[in-house]
Simulated scan of single mutants.
Amino acid sequence: MRKVFAFLMISLLVVVGLSWSVYATPEDYYKATGKKIEKFHEAPMLAELVKQGKLPPVEERLPKEPLVVVPEESVGQYGGTWRRVWKGPSDRWGIPRINQASLVFWDKNGEKFVPGLAKGWDILEDGKVYVFHLREGTKWSDGHPYTSEDILFWIEDILGNDDLTPAKPAWYRLLDRVEAPDPYTVKFIFKQPYALFLLQVANRGFTGAPKHFLKQFHPKYTPMEEIEKKMVPGVHNTWVDLFDDKSDFLESLDLPVLTPWKPVTDPTDQFYILERNPYF
């Protein structure tokens, strides 16, 4: 039987149209248009969860300075189910094409970079140092704060761990170190000028990983005897097997995400269903 990929429409703002304008913050939007954003709206199903006390108000779920996207034509209507052909787990890389978060994105024409999870960035020392300024108040799908620690964890404890990542990406081999001066600032420092780094960021996301969740499966943060209690005999032969399972965006239903949609069913089921991330 053909499998169907069912999405539930989720954004706090649904945009219709082929082109749009992007502003890094509401203040930038005000400076450009003279219009102030004084109230935020949300999908009716999320508003109902707020009424039930199951979610904080939308103002508490958004970053302090959220990204502003102005549609070319009009704001879309909430509701409905998006059904898409789904070929099963082997189709895993089809998901990020329509369900992605990133520090930096391409603009609608693919000509320049625009803000994402980072509200801005600085390129210093002729392209040797890249400084990203994260949005204060951004949260993972479980409501936990997203900070520079999540990017450091990904760089140092996942990519930098030879058991988890024996083959390093090319850009990582050019990296000297990553620093986090504060919770909302991340500095990538390369051994030499690296002019293509923003292209790598926009293409690959570079969001980091949810340290608060994954550290319970990493021996640097959790005693091995505790990790072994979470391993399933016949499935996990090493802690790496367990960590890989728990960090898999496709199969780990407990994994917090930053993307618009979050999986709620197993990818081998007849219908693979993703629901709204209320903190997107």
Rank of each mutant, 00 (worst) to 15 (best):
H144F: 05
H144L: 14
P145V: 05
Y146E: 07
T147G: 12
T147H: 07
S148A: 15
E149T: 13
E149C: 04
D150C: 03
D150G: 00
I151W: 00
I151G: 00
L152G: 12
F153M: 00
W154H: 10
W154C: 12
I155G: 12
I155K: 05
E156W: 02
D157E: 09
D157W: 03
I158R: 01
I158N: 02
L159D: 06
L159A: 10
G160K: 05
G160L: 07
G160I: 04
G160V: 02
D162L: 08
D163Q: 14
D163W: 06
T165V: 06
A167Q: 11
K168R: 14
K168T: 02
K168E: 14
P169Q: 10
A170K: 13
W171R: 00
Y172C: 10
L175A: 06
L175N: 02
D176I: 05
D176E: 15
R177M: 06
R177F: 03
V178Q: 10
V178E: 11
V178A: 15
E179S: 14
E179F: 08
A180T: 14
P181E: 13
P181A: 15
P183N: 08
Y184D: 06
T185F: 13
K187V: 14
K187A: 14
F188H: 02
I189G: 01
F190E: 10
F190A: 14
F190K: 12
F190M: 13
K191P: 01
Q192E: 15
Q192P: 00
Q192T: 15
P193N: 05
A195T: 01
L196I: 10
L196C: 05
F197H: 04
F197P: 00
F197K: 03
F197Y: 01
L199R: 13
Q200T: 06
V201S: 04
A202P: 01
N203F: 11
N203Q: 15
R204F: 15
R204G: 06
G205S: 07
G205N: 01
G205K: 00
G205D: 04
T207E: 07
G208S: 04
A209I: 01
P210T: 05
K211S: 09
K211M: 13
H212W: 00
H212Y: 03
H212M: 04
H212T: 05
F213K: 05
L214W: 00
K215Y: 13
Q216H: 06
Q216I: 08
Q216N: 08
H218N: 09
H218M: 09
K220V: 05
K220P: 01
K220H: 11
Y221E: 11
Y221D: 03
Y221N: 12
T222V: 01
P223D: 10
P223Q: 07
M224W: 01
E225T: 12
E225V: 08
E225H: 13
E226N: 09
E226H: 05
I227W: 00
I227C: 09
K229V: 10
K229T: 09
K229Q: 10
K230G: 03
K230Y: 04
M231I: 12
P233E: 06
G234L: 06
G234K: 03
G234W: 13
V235A: 12
T238M: 02
W239M: 01
V240I: 00
D241L: 14
D241G: 09
F243S: 08
F243D: 10
F243W: 14
K246C: 13
S247F: 04
D248M: 07
F249M: 12
F249N: 05
L250W: 04
L250R: 04
E251N: 12
E251G: 13
